[in-house]
Structure formats: C-alpha cells, structure tokens
C-alpha cells in the first residue's frame, strides 16, 4: 500500500470538507446528506432548515454527478456489487438507519467528528464497525462482494 493510494481520497476529502464549510460558514447548516434528503421527502424527518436550500443542495449533488459523468466517467462503477433486491434492502436500511441515528457519513462522520461531538464520534465508530462486520460476514458466507 503506497502513500499515493491515499492522494485521491485525501484530495476528495478536502473538497468534501470545503463543501461542508460552505454550508456551515455561509448558511449556518450541517452538510448532512441523509438529513437534507429526508427533509425533502418529509419535512419533520429532516434537519432543520428551509427546503429550498435542501433542494438546491441535492440539485448541486446531481449537477456534480453529471459533470463527473461527462469528464471522468471512470469514477462510477461498471457494475453493481450486489443483486437488485440486496441493493434495495441496503437502501432501506440506510434510509431508516440514518433517520433513527440522526445522520450518516457526512453529518456525523465529517461534520460532527470534526467538532468532537460525542454523539457523532460514537455513531461513526458504530456504523463503520457495523459495516465491517457486515462485509466480513458476507465474505465468510461466500456472498461475492
């Protein structure tokens, strides 16, 4: 494992940090994607804040996706890692779990951990550990990843 393998991820992480900093310093909001997404679906389920701003953020995510698709399509996979029903189940757990736990990789993992919020540190350690256990169990059971 060379240091170069970390260059892309760290560069990407710096951009993610800049995006989250724009939300915090410009709008006084947490760039928590699960909360923003849920707020668009059901106002009471999302983070506080106005829905027009949420919609603009999600629009920006999709616009960024289109830019990537045009200039660097290799950042997307050629195929999905699992079958369709498993992907749907995975999505359900991600949607339900992030609402029950009030955040995901962005809100807890980046925004919360960086201010040393105990809840976010606990949540991040927990969801990373749960993800690791899940991947390990699936591999041991022989489910190809």
């Amino acid at each position: 494992m060379s240091l170069q393998a970390f260059a892309g991820p760290v560069a990407g992480g710096l951009l993610v940090g800049v995006a989250a900093a724009i939300m915090l310093l410009g709008l006084g909001r947490i760039a928590g994607i699960s909360g923003i997404f849920a707020g668009l679906l059901a106002p009471t389920a999302g983070t506080p804040g106005d829905r027009a701003t949420d919609a603009a953020f999600v629009g920006g995510l999709l616009a960024g996706g289109l830019v990537l698709l045009a200039v660097a399509p290799q950042v997307f996979p050629a195929a999905a890692p699992r079958t369709l029903p498993v992907m749907a189940l995975a999505g359900f757990l991600v949607g339900f779990g992030t609402r029950l736990g009030c955040g995901c990789t962005s809100g807890h993992g980046v925004c919360g951990v960086s201010r040393l919020a105990p809840r976010s540190i606990a949540a991040t350690a927990t969801f990373v550990a749960a993800g690791m256990v899940t991947v390990t169990v699936l591999r041991v059971l022989g489910v190809a990843s």
């Binding site: 995975a90 995901c104 990789t105 606990a122 927990t126 749960a130």
Partner: peptide, 20 residues
C-alpha cells in the same frame, strides 16, 4: 443513536453506498 448507526452500517456494508 447507536441502534440507527448499526442499521445504517449494515446497509452500508451490504450495498457499498452511503446516502451522498
């Protein structure tokens, strides 16, 4: 909080996608 994080983590490990 912790139950939600476990459920989210299982979903993340199943599909490889978090919300963003």
């Amino acid at each position: 909080l912790l139950a939600g994080a476990v459920i989210f983590g299982v979903g993340w490990g199943l599909g490889g996608y978090c919300p963003g």
